[in-house]
Design a protein around this nucleic acid. Structure first.
Length: 745
DNA sequence: ATTAGCTTATGT
DNA sequence: CATAAGCTAATC
């Protein structure tokens, strides 16, 4: 037998090896094997069974070892790896590497501990004989005879101060036997296992939930690929819908993959989920998968899934690759979260990979969010995904009153810029007197500063890409993040002529000081990455806040994730503009998401809460729509905007393509565009072709070309929309996924 | 990734 | 002509 192997050696080639006869039965596609590469031994994944195309069979080396009795990558995952290599333009080997936990990659195998057990009790006579002949063996026997359970071999031997030879001899006599047991660690055994058991009782569904669950269950019953977008407002009980789906799937013998953004994977949330799972599907082990696990913990989880001992995994981005057996349901919670993007090669998007994996396995995929990403929503509108909607809050809590404060007017009133508007200050004082709590959000998304006029709210944008330009203080220049356009930073606002147009958000510290001035007697706590450096500080502050020992909590978005504080009746967003001016074409989308998230924090059972949004651009659509909690309206207007000319066609690829070496895709893209431009202009467009130079050079070349094309096309061809209509990626890419359906043309 | 083996530059 | 430095190609 001859196999093709993807060695994990840093290059993307399939090398072939002979398989020695004794290993034949253990080797299959996906097996983890040890193979010789040049002078070293490397691990690799069997990618195919068959002979090499252009390499003499007689010169092949042989596989040295097969690591596991089961394939480390199921055929389905291997297929996914190949798809990812094409889609994200990276090597299959690097995908395989990210799919396998570090411990597996290093060749870890199952850890066993040896223990000694008594086979039978000896008669007094036998014991005397043994004592005479082999006193050490007799001592060992007596120790074991005193215990009820088998004892750890290493422990017993060191206790008695004898060597393994004694135990071996005793085994040979047939008095004692050796037992192997797999050692296991359970992640978060202390924290997670006995967390809150509050939510363990099964909930009754409201009619809306029941309808969605019924729909989902009938889909699951079909046992084939499909995607549903679950759009449920904050507090509408999406989790309950997931749980019913999980229950149905487990009962049908299927496996479940539950993805959440890393930040949402706190001990509390996992504990809650676990106890609900326990209640709904008793006896199922649930593997938790996230970046803070030790290698050993991750390995054990991986093993439990690969061997089918556990059928459900809850985890962050990298858990999409968990070897869940008979995968039937994939859930991606908060699917709009940018945390699903990996920012190292391979730069994959967890949500998109999840959809593709579902397709390859024939599983059902549920994407859930209160503010779906526009690409998913557009897919739902186009009928590719089934749209399920939850509009009612489970607790019937009312939507908060949202006030938008115009900071330009505020600045004029006070003749200087203030962190807290009068409205916000008054509201905070009222809460303090009523012993209710306030959260102030600082929006620190834009670490790169943009230029914003404090008088009229104007922001300098790139003329080609219509995203905010980044202000570089060192050389007083404005640069475009996308196309590289640059120009001198203006001294006066180009729109209204006001002299001072620099505004770089407020830090948590300054806001905290401002609050202290207006509420000297209030207990204020700050929560940002600096203040939370100490390990348990985060949880400590949260529990104090929950207990009402803190009046005002000032912090960044880290406050908002999956936490619910019942006594918070006021939420202030200090500067809504910051997320609107990040150099990202999803800026409006992000702003909308932030506002909805902020609004979801306000209010309590009996009364609607208040939200104060401070902004320089109160007319912005993202703010206006989120005020009315009108997601569909926002999506419609934003999608329309994206269809219009301003959005360079390659933008959606930036994350995937621009940051890694992807000559193939860039080439493909450049050529497509060249053809379109030629047709439109009626003249030949010269492509600086790929030279046989190293990857970096090609990359730079094509980057330049893309820049060139964008400029040339935008300048010369006004009707870009027409071009866009004629552009299509190959079927296999667009079939299931549109990374960004509007821009994917 | 790693490295043998080839080409080219540098210096006496 | 020796040595160093740069580059390419192969890994089964």
């Amino acid at each position: 037998m001859i196999v093709g192997v993807h060695p994990l050696a840093g290059f993307d080639k399939l090398l072939h090896y002979k398989v020695p006869d004794p290993m034949r039965d253990a080797v299959q596609v996906g097996s983890l094997v040890r193979v010789p590469v040049l002078r070293t031994m490397r691990l690799g994944i069997v990618g195919e069974i068959g002979v090499p195309k252009d390499f003499p069979v007689e010169k092949l080396k042989a596989v040295v070892e097969v690591l596991h009795p089961f394939p480390a990558l199921t055929p389905e995952l291997l297929q996914l790896a190949r798809w990812m290599a094409g889609y994200y333009a990276c090597g299959v080997d690097s995908v395989i590497e990210t799919m396998l936990p570090a411990a597996v990659r290093r060749g870890a195998t199952v850890k066993h501990e040896k223990s000694l057990a008594l086979v039978r009790r000896l008669t007094p006579d036998e014991l005397t004989v043994l004592e005479k002949k082999a006193p050490q063996q007799a001592r060992l026997y007596r120790l074991l005879a005193q215990q009820f359970r088998p004892q750890l071999k290493s422990l017993v031997l060191s206790r008695l101060g004898v060597t393994a030879a004694v135990a071996t001899a005793l085994i040979k006599r047939g008095f004692v036997r050796e037992e192997l047991r797999r050692v296991e660690r359970v992640a978060y055994a202390d924290d997670f296992a006995h967390g809150e058991l509050v939510a363990a009782q099964p909930h009754t569904l409201n009619p809306e939930q029941a309808a969605v669950v019924a729909d989902l269950e009938s889909r699951l019953g079909e046992q084939k690929f499909g995607v549903a977008l679950l759009h449920g407002v904050t507090g509408s009980g999406k989790t309950e819908v997931y749980l019913r789906g999980i229950d149905t799937t487990l009962k049908a013998g299927g496996g479940v993959l539950f993805l959440v953004p890393e930040v949402a994977l706190t001990p509390q949330t996992v504990a809650r989920l676990r106890s609900r799972l326990e209640a709904i599907a008793p006896g199922h082990r649930c593997v938790v998968w996230h970046s803070h696990l030790s290698d050993g913990e991750r390995f054990d989880g991986w093993l439990a899934l690969a061997t089918g001992e556990a059928r459900i995994v809850v985890g962050a981005r990298s858990a999409v690759f968990a070897p869940v057996a008979n995968l039937r349901l994939i859930i991606v919670d908060e699917e709009h979260e940018p945390a699903y993007k990996q920012d190292e090669t391979p730069r994959y998007h967890g949500r998109d990979v999840a959809v593709m994996r579902a397709k390859l396995t024939g599983a059902f995929c549920v994407l859930g969010s209160a503010t779906p990403s526009l690409e998913s929503f557009a897919n739902a509108l186009a009928g590719k995904y089934r749209l399920l909607t939850l509009t009612q809050r489970v607790d019937n809590r009312q939507l908060p009153n949202i006030d938008v404060v115009d900071l330009r007017i505020e600045a004029m009133k006070h003749r200087s810029l203030t962190a807290l508007s009068d409205k916000l200050v008054n509201a905070m004082q009222a809460r303090f007197e009523r012993r209710e709590q306030t959260i102030l959000f600082i929006n620190r998304r834009g670490y790169s500063s943009s230029m914003l006029c404090t008088k009229c709210g104007h922001v300098e944008e790139c003329p080609h890409c219509s995203i905010a330009m980044t202000y570089h203080r060192a050389d007083e220049m404005l640069r475009c993040h996308l196309c590289g356009e640059q120009k001198a930073a203006p001294a006066r606002c180009p729109q209204c002529g006001a002299p001072d147009i620099r505004w770089r958000g407020l830090g948590t510290q300054r806001v905290e000081e401002a609050v202290r001035r207006v509420l000297p007697r209030a207990r204020i706590e700050r929560m940002d990455t600096d203040a939370m450096a100490k390990k348990n500080r985060f949880r400590e502050v949260l529990s104090q806040f929950r207990a009402g020992k803190i009046d005002v909590l000032v912090g960044t978005q880290m406050i908002g994730k999956g936490l619910d504080f019942p006594n918070v009746t006021l939420v202030g967003l200090i500067d809504a503009d910051m997320s609107m001016h990040i150099p990202d074409f999803r800026a409006n989308e992000r702003t909308f998401q932030l506002l909805v998230q902020v609004a979801g924090r306000a209010g309590r059972g009996d009364r609607a809460g208040d939200v104060v949004v401070q902004t320089f651009t109160p007319q912005a659509e993202a703010i206006q729509f989120s005020r009315r909690a009108d997601f569909a309206g926002f999506a419609e207007s934003e999608l329309k905007l994206r269809k219009e000319f301003h959005y360079p066609p390659y933008r959606h690829l930036i994350h995937h393509l621009f940051r890694g070496p992807n000559p193939e895709k860039l080439k493909f893209f450049a050529e497509q565009w060249a053809r379109l431009v030629e047709k439109e202009l009626g003249q030949i467009v010269e492509l600086r072709g790929p030279s046989a130079s190293p990857i970096e050079k090609i990359k730079d070349e094509y980057r330049w070309q893309l820049w060139y094309f964008t400029h040339a096309v935008i300048k010369v061809v006004p009707a870009l929309a027409k071009l866009r209509a004629g552009f299509a990626w190959p079927d296999d890419i667009t079939q299931v996924l549109d990374v960004d359906p509007v821009n994917l043309m």
